[in-house]
Structures are given as C-alpha cells and as structure tokens.
Amino acid sequence: MSTVVLLLITGLGLGALYFLVASGLSLIYGLMGVLNFAHGSFLTLAAFLGWETARALGADSWGALAAALLVGAAAGALVAAGTELLLIRRLYERHIEQVLVTVGLALASVALFDGIWGTDPQFIRGPAWLAETTEILGARIPNNRFLLIAIAILVLLLIVLFLRFTRYGLIIRAGVENRSMVTALGIDVRRAFTVVFAIGGAAAGIGGVLASHYFGYVSPQLGGSLLIFAFIVTVIGGLGSLPGAAVASVVVAVLQQFANFYLGGTGDLVVVLLLAVVLLVRPRGLFGRAA
C-alpha cells in the first residue's frame, strides 16, 4: 500500500512538471499552430537563473526559493515573448519554417548554456523542508512533490481564470476556435500571440525552477529531456486543449512511475506505447477537437 501511495504522489509531482511545460506548448499550438521546440530552452534558462538567484540570496531560505520562482517565471516570459516578436512573427502562416526556427533556437541555446554553465549537472539546495519527507499512509513522500503539485494547480487555476475573465483570455479562446473570424472582426490577434507565448514561457520558467528541485540539479539538458515527454503529453491530451494537457500529464506521469517500479524500469517505453495506442484509436487525442 505504502509503495502505491508513494508512486502515486511522486507520479502526480512529475505530472505537475509535465503540465507546466505542456500547458504552454498546448496553448501556443492551439492558437498559432506552432510547435515550439525552444520551449525546453526557456525552461532550462529559467532553471539556471533561478539557481543563480537562490545562490545569491542564500539557498536554503524560503524567500530565496520564492525569488527564484519569480525570476524563473519572469525570465521564461521575457525570453518567450522575445522569441515570438523577433523570430516567429516574421514567419506567420509558414508552420514548417516556424518549427525549424524554434529547432535552431533550441540547438543554439543549449550549446550556449553548455558554454556558460558547463555540461555537468549543478547540484542545488533548497529550504530544508523540501529535502525532508512526510509520512502518508505509511509512505515516506519527499516534500518537494507537494510543492510541485500545489504550484501546478495554482498555475492551472490562474491560466483558466485568465482565459475566462479577461479580455485577452476571450480573444485567445476565440482565436483557438476560429482565428480568421477573430481577425475579420477587426481584433489584432497578433498581440494575443505574444501574450500566449509569454504565459507559456512563464509556466515553463516556473517548471524549470521546480524541476531543478525535483531532480536535485540543473543541467543544460534539463529542458530537452522534459520537452519530449511534454510533447507526448500534449499529443495524448489533444493539441490545443488545456484540460487535455492537465489530464494527460497526470496519466502519463503516474503510468510512467508505476511501470518503472512494477515492470522493471520500462516507464519510458510504456509511455511511447500509450502514445501509439491513443493515436491509433483516437488520432486527435483525448480532448482534441476533430480536425
């Protein structure tokens, strides 16, 4: 029983990470049709800047962690918005080229991080409570899982509230439904594109700082390894669907944890298998709209 609880909560924690990356990917794809390969780089950059911030402020206080999260979110949002304005905007409606530009950005930025921070993982420290465990139903759960889950739920709520109750949220939701109609009504969707990129970047930035606590280190490869699973999550959940991304994150991560434990470390393979099955049975994903 205690093993099941441990796997379940650890899976939820990992799912929270996947969601933070996948939510941005899904929103960006839903509105603009851009598959953002540079999303992992936003995450890695935020993780490194968050780590530097926490180091400067004394790594084991809660204030430093909060500052790291803020810096991470801000860095993610700024870089993402910059990417949209400088690179993506020039290539509207040319989806393949947009993907290619983000691929180039991902390659170049990871190489740059290698140069600045070195290729070896940098081990990090956080508030002492995060490294401790709490006992639930006999399972000793690392506390950082709770932090991950709480923040991911908070981010999900904030995004949902933003989409429901603000003017930009309305434009974005309408744009996902039918972009040409929104443009025809005289609304500049382009600004919404930048906003969506910034939101996605901020979520990925928060995810980056939290990922460094989940794994215990930061490295230039951090974003790339999470990005592949975030892609899988996005496709399983249905490209462009925020609830789909949330549900699929949890399903994928929990399944991965259980398969890793009970099926001899085959978690990654099981996830790929799940993707293949979902695409064969339901090519648009769990929550995707019919193409």
Partner: peptide, 14 residues
C-alpha cells in the same frame, strides 16, 4: 560552441 554557431546559422538561413 560549434552548435551555437551552426544553430544561429540555421536560424538565419530559415
């Protein structure tokens, strides 16, 4: 970082 230069070159070509 060779990949940085190649990646940048790639973006410029695209």
């Amino acid at each position: 970082e060779p990949l940085f230069i190649l990646g940048t070159l790639f973006i410029l070509v695209v």
